[in-house]
Amino acid sequence: MTFAVSFQKVSRHFGAVRAVDGVDLDIRPGEFFAMLGPSGSGKTTCLRLIAGFERPTAGHIEIFGARAEAIPPYRRNVNTVFQDYALFPHLNVVDNVAYGLMIKGVPKAARRREAGAALEMVKMPGYGDRRPGQLSGGQRQRVALARALVNRPRVLLLDEPLGALDLKLRENMQEELKTLQKSLGITFVFVTHDQGEALSMADRVAVFNDGRLMQLGTPQEIYGSPNSRFVADFVGSSNVLPPVLVERCAGQRRWASLRPEAVKIGAPGRLSATVVSRAYLGGATRLGLDVEGQRINALVPAGEALPAEGETVRLGFADEDLHLMEPG
């Protein structure tokens, strides 16, 4: 299979700093791919390596089967939606969108037509004569999207595309991006530090930390069975159980993760806990529990009986909900 993007032992070091360190990664054609991680984890550098703004210090990068690490960004059919949108302040909206076509030498009438169509696609028709400075953040984002898509890239890169938008706009945009990606069939690669965004939008998620790829999988795999304490901690609010407790429940002296909604209060419990806190969340209540000095969160769906604070309860869970992590 030819991958849209393929990293083979790719490293990018800046002096002593290992921004990206030996990453192997395959992105499938037509997939909505998320790179998730805290700031400084190497996810943005990976994006910049695909775009061509950075060159790897070691390893190979292929884009649709072609070796790309020495190809300058202007020769890659890959386009980027920048975090700060990077719209050209001296050009109006339609000239911004038509910039790539102008560089390719498309005649003025044709490129204006295509830019207009692209603006329509991102629901910004009629904004062509405005200056970027006259647009809101959400509108700039749409223009940046149109400016990238009008070039018909093989891969579209999005760097924290929704980071600067407020919550409501964000949710709208998430849906729209998803629909757009499905209808265009272009490979989308987007970088985010928001695990909710990654899980809800992506077909597959790559979790980064300290320049290394920690886990790659579907949102279900990442969320349901994190393979390391870092992933468990970073992706959502999973409980991490120390080897002492895990040994007692599962017989193996390993770290393990347990989703809060998998924790069952009462009945055949293997552990005993004290209720430390109760927080009403609407659809459920979050209980803070203390198990021999270890803090564990449990989500109790609305309607179920709730223990009082300070009460001692038994807690249990199905065996398949306890995910043992790889040692080390």
């Binding site: 649709f64 020769r75 059919n77 696609m121 898509l149 009008v150 018909r152 093989r154 891969v155 265009l184």
Partner: peptide, 18 residues
Amino acid sequence: MSAVGTIGAAGPSDAILP
């Protein structure tokens, strides 16, 4: 979404431009 059909319809060989 009228322009959708014209976008993204390129062959796999043009990921890297000459």
